[in-house]
Design a protein around this nucleic acid. Structure first.
Length: 526
RNA sequence: GGUCCCAUCGUCUAGCGGUUAGGACGUCAGAUUCUCAUUCUGAAAACACGGGUUCGAUUCCCGUUGGGACUGCCA
């Protein structure tokens, strides 16, 4: 154990004195007044790029856990890595939360919620550690550490600043002053008293108690370059003073679990309950191996891509939600719950092994979801999408909104038998594009029976009711000696260019006489 | 190399010592339909391997193998 630093030295070492004592912080950030069993969670992304599907998954769990217990869900931006920070990334995250309806409650009392604005908190806690001899200023340079790492590798030792390799671990006040006088700025390191020969047990809500060798690394608490905390130290300070009860984070944090447990004990604070989630993976097309969906290599991991493609956010929530709570799907199909928000998410049931992202299943959720939408709502959602992502479609719809509504209303009257052709807003429009002459692609492959088409044309009357219309088709089939379906298929392909469409009668009604007649004539004549 | 996590149909999973190992997506087949949609019916499809413990292991323990994560003044 080292001797604590004097107040004067602490101020110099930190580049400023502590603003608060620990007791003052406790008072400033009092325990929350919440009902028994309420979860306080937080989504804490670092603004280093776009919103990732894995981040969305974690924030869904965070939000759901807080919501179902009448707790609090916070959004905390971990912008402590000034080098990797990407402009507007925080805005994208905030926007995503809004779009998916994850309402966070960033109560002012516990803020600010940007870590870069919480230096006072970190510095105050660091000062306490320094005063107690549980942390020390370290003047090792990047080159020094590189050299140490090299030597460790060559000698077969574990890399890192620990024990005898931690040069400044027991640095004297005189030496500190000497470095300071030379204009050097130290980082603040943890004075670790952990011994790898001992085991420390860490509690995970899903995996239970996990044993690790104790941590003996003097990890950096405060970085020298910007005075900001590392993840570890920020986690300790923020989740304590924000009174987080449950920390949902990726399993990549498992290795630093003993460190975090050690730090909480050192402070005499009760650690939150941890939920280390599994990653959402894909099969790497090059190696053929399963790996985490990555920001750098997988554009499909970008939530913005799902939005631009017009996936209903509800379907994405359903899909992700079912991964987190596997019983949800069955409850939903059986009608026991209306949405994911009605289904209880149990922390213990959150999966702990990596999950392959399954686009087919997402498609299924999306089809099911869109099929539940009333026409007006469907039209609205499609239009909203077009307004934001596809100006051409937006203009086209804007010219005649009723037309789109009539198209999308086809075969939507019987709620039990709604076609499930629509997957995304974008694909919905593509699916019905044949209703517009300039988008209509006549089918060049299909061998039309012009005889049948002529016969239909001569009897066609848009005013016919459905029975009359069908009777005419049956009559033509009988007359020409073909099946009813043959006549129908010829009509289907001639009008839509496709072999699979909704009800033909409805299509003709929506298209109107001119389109129907012209398209048939084009084939007969051409 | 070290530490840690994980292991049931192709995929997501139910299972918490005795089950014909269940469901969902997907796949395939059949029925209905004007259609390759919908709806309905049915089928194929899994406990990684080896040791224990036990009357009995998918289930508990150990090992092996396989997959994953970490090993930064990044999170």
């Amino acid at each position: 154990m080292r001797k604590g630093l004097s107040a004067d030295l602490i101020t110099r070492v930190l580049g400023g004195g502590p603003k608060y004592t620990l007791a003052e912080l406790e008072e400033k950030y009092p325990p929350r007044n919440l009902p028994e069993g309420a979860f306080v969670t937080r989504f804490s992304p670092s603004p280093t790029g776009y919103m990732h599907i894995g981040g969305l998954y974690m924030s869904l769990i965070d939000y759901k856990l807080a919501k179902q217990t009448d707790g609090v869900f916070m959004l905390r931006i971990e912008d402590t890595d000034t080098k990797r920070e990407v402009k507007d990334a925080a805005k994208i995250i905030v926007d995503s939360m809004k779009r998916f309806g994850f309402e966070y409650n960033n109560d002012e009392v516990y803020g600010p919620y940007y870590q870069s604005q919480r230096k006072d908190v970190y510095r105050s806690v660091a000062a306490d550690l320094l005063a107690r001899g549980l942390a020390y200023p370290c003047f090792l340079t990047a080159e020094d550490m590189e050299k140490i790492r090299e030597n460790q590798k060559n000698a077969g030792f574990a890399t890192g600043i620990y024990g005898e390799f931690a040069r400044d671990r027991d640095i004297s006040e005189e030496d500190i002053i000497r470095h300071l006088d030379a204009g050097e700025v130290p980082s603040i390191r943890l004075y670790s008293t952990g011994n790898p020969d001992n085991r420390i047990f860490c509690k995970d809500a899903v995996r239970g108690s996990i044993g690790f060798p104790e941590n003996n690394e003097d990890i950096v608490l405060i970085k020298s370059n910007d005075g900001l905390p590392t993840y570890h130290f920020a986690h300790l300070c923020d989740d304590h003073f924000m009174r987080t009860t449950h920390v949902v984070r990726g399993e990549e944090w498992l290795p630093s679990f003993p460190l975090h447990t050690q730090m909480f004990r050192m402070m005499g604070w009760t650690p939150p309950l941890y939920i280390h989630t599994a990653t959402i993976d894909k099969i790497d097309p090059e190696t053929g191996k399963q790996r985490k969906l990555s920001k750098r290599h997988d554009p499909e991991a970008n939530v913005a891509f799902f939005l631009a493609d017009g996936w209903p956010t509800e379907a994405i929530i359903d899909y992700l939600g079912n991964i987190a709570a596997s019983g949800y799907e069955e409850a939903k199909v059986k009608g026991q719950v209306k949405s994911f928000w009605d289904y209880e998410l149990r922390p213990k049931k959150i999966p702990m092994s990596g999950v392959l992202f399954d686009n087919r299943k997402l498609e299924w959720w999306a089809k099911e979801y869109i099929a539940t939408l009333p026409v007006d709502e469907l039209v609205k959602r499609v239009r909203d999408w077009a307004d934001e992502y596809d100006p051409q479609w937006a203009a086209r719809i804007g010219d005649n909104p009723e037309y789109l509504k009539n198209i999308l209303a086809i075969e939507r009257d019987n709620p039990k038998r709604i076609r499930k052709d629509f997957i995304t807003w974008k694909q919905t429009l593509q699916e019905v594009s044949y209703f517009w002459d300039d988008l209509f692609l006549s089918n060049k492959e299909y061998e039309f029976n012009k005889d049948l088409l002529s016969a239909f044309l001569s009897t066609f009357d848009i005013c016919d009711d459905k029975d009359t219309w069908w009777a005419k088709i049956v009559a033509i089939a009988a007359d020409k000696g073909v099946k009813n379906g043959d006549v129908a298929m010829n009509l289907r392909v001639v009008l839509t260019g496709r072999t699979n469409t909704p009800d033909l009668y409805s299509i003709m009604q929506v298209m109107g006489t001119d389109k129907v007649v012209n398209r048939i004539k084009d084939v007969i004549n051409g």
